[in-house]
Design a protein around this nucleic acid. Structure first.
Lengths: 193, 193
DNA sequence: CACGTATTGGGTCGAACGGTCCATCTAGCA
DNA sequence: TGCTAGATGGACCGTTCGACCCAATACGTG
């Protein structure tokens, strides 16, 4: 398998196995799938980076999910590829990782930059005025849900929905859900169907 | 006064006098001011058209109020001028009225067409899903007003505001003010600031 | 380890909300 | 002259909402 410029020293079937093998084999690069049994790739990446700092991790995923990408970057991944890329592209990404470079699928480059921007500029300019859960509450209410319906769909109690709303009221300078949703629509936080 | 092609046979100081004089003098055309003591021009126009069908009425007003214009057209006015037009334009409008034509100030022509459109197409396509007052309530709530604030600004009781809202809920298929306002925004009934 | 934030949740309380009855008044219509 | 729709209100009732307390858990930062 040295035709690509590197040797495959091992294969793991799940996250736990990957971490153990990384510890014993101490490879230069690990090609890690996001979706894995026992332990997902992002968590495995985090543990590998903590246990074996010299090992580079390239993540491989099915979907260009920005949320997962962000977590992978935070976990210390040195590359992130979507699965529809060619074998040569994967090999290239592994070689780049070994030399300290970062490989990234084109369709992920843009959201990658956005994520880095958020990470770096979070203290100076907070784009996310409301948290993820608060945003979910706003969108559901905009979609016509009552408090109890929001609670059911988010698998939380009505009280928690109200807590999120109370937090939203402060952040969006609203005094009731009507104003909060309207403000969220103006700010582009939620969509109007 | 025949320099303009017609004679002035009388002048009335208020709406009641205008109706009486129209009945006795049976003029070809009446130049009627919208704002008049005793009886406003629109009502006077209505009564003249009922009592003396052959008489044409040209309305004269200070403001290009679409609501008043609509009422005047319904009242049977054959022309509608804003007061900043020239003497010759007024004379022209009177002559046109006498021959059965309709004179209209340019700035009123557009809203006139809109009004005609509404009148003709009202049975087939009801643009106005909510009434004028209901629309006011929706806009104020969209602007951030509470029930009591809406009541204050519209000079009505909170109960009436609630009544309007209840009517709105049925028409817009909403169950609370949040959904009602959002639906109104989607339908373009109210503006988002 | 302490600290802040996010998320989850409980309880209470007064105000607001929505629904259901009802009545009055005005316009426009048949 | 009724009839209908619109606008205006009143009274009542149950539910919901928002504000104000509070606490437990988890997570990341310093």
């Amino acid at each position: 398998m040295s035709e690509h410029g590197f040797d495959v020293v091992g294969e793991a079937r799940d996250g736990v196995e990957a971490v153990n093998m990384a510890y014993s084999l101490n490879p230069d690069v690990i090609l890690m799938d996001v979706s894995m049994p026992e332990m997902d790739g992002v968590e495995a990446c985090r543990q590998v980076r903590a246990a074996v700092p010299g090992t580079k991790v390239v993540m491989l995923t099915m979907h260009a999910d920005q949320e997962v990408l962000a977590n992978a970057i935070r976990a210390g991944a040195c590359g992130y590829l979507v699965k529809d890329c060619s074998t040569e592209e994967i090999a290239s990404a592994v070689r780049m990782a070994s030399t300290g470079d970062t490989a990234l699928s084109p369709q992920l480059a843009a959201s990658m930059l956005d994520e880095v921007r958020k990470l770096d500029m979070a203290p100076t300019r907070e784009d996310r005025v409301v948290t993820k859960r608060e945003e979910e509450v706003l969108q559901l209410i905009a979609d016509g849900c009552s408090t109890s319906e929001v609670a059911d769909q988010m698998y939380i109690s009505q009280k928690t929905v109200k807590n999120h709303l109370a937090s939203i009221y402060q952040k969006l300078d609203a005094r009731d859900r009507t104003q909060a949703v309207l403000q969220a629509v103006r700010m582009g936080i939620v969509s109007l169907e």
